[in-house]
């Protein structure tokens, strides 16, 4: 079990992404990196920031970064910790999360909208990581 958020968790997430053939196919043309940010709430005291570099259907690199300003990325996907728990548990989808304002995206929506299946597969990968929540 890996604690979410932690360096160990994001590394296991990378492994899951790189095992996922459906993601590889859906994101074969994708180029772009993300900051995934869990905003503080009653469970999480300090903002947690992951860097995830996705390239042509593979996850090239991941890491925990000290703050949102420490890394410039093409996209930022962020929401409260409790909403990340719901996303990882499959209770809300990545796009519905945006529409209901549980998550916020910074970056080109036009580019993201072409990769709905890839986004869904990524969430599927996150759900497969054996996770211990706060």
């Amino acid at each position: 079990m890996a604690k979410f958020p932690s360096e160990e968790w994001i590394k296991l997430f990378k492994e899951e992404v790189n095992k996922n053939e459906a993601y590889a196919e859906a994101a074969k043309d994708w180029e772009g990196d993300f900051l995934f940010i869990a905003n503080p709430d009653d469970k999480l005291e300090k903002e947690a920031v992951f860097w995830v570099d996705l390239w042509h259907g593979k996850c090239r690199e991941v890491g925990v970064v000290p703050s949102r300003d420490a890394k410039k990325t093409e996209f930022i996907y962020e929401g409260k910790y409790g909403n990340w728990v719901k996303l990882i548990n499959g209770e809300i989808g990545p796009i519905r999360g945006l529409l209901t304002r549980k998550f916020k995206l910074t970056g080109s929506m036009a580019k993201i909208m072409k990769y709905t299946r890839a986004a869904s597969e990524l969430v599927g990968c996150a759900s497969k990581v054996p996770t211990e929540f706060l």
Binding site: A22, A26, Y115, T116, R117, S120
Partner: peptide
């Protein structure tokens, strides 16, 4: 079709 956002609203989401 597999990448359309409509696919993910379907009650049963088909894979490729």
């Amino acid at each position: 079709a597999a990448n359309s956002s409509c696919t993910f609203m379907n009650p049963r989401v088909p894979d490729v």
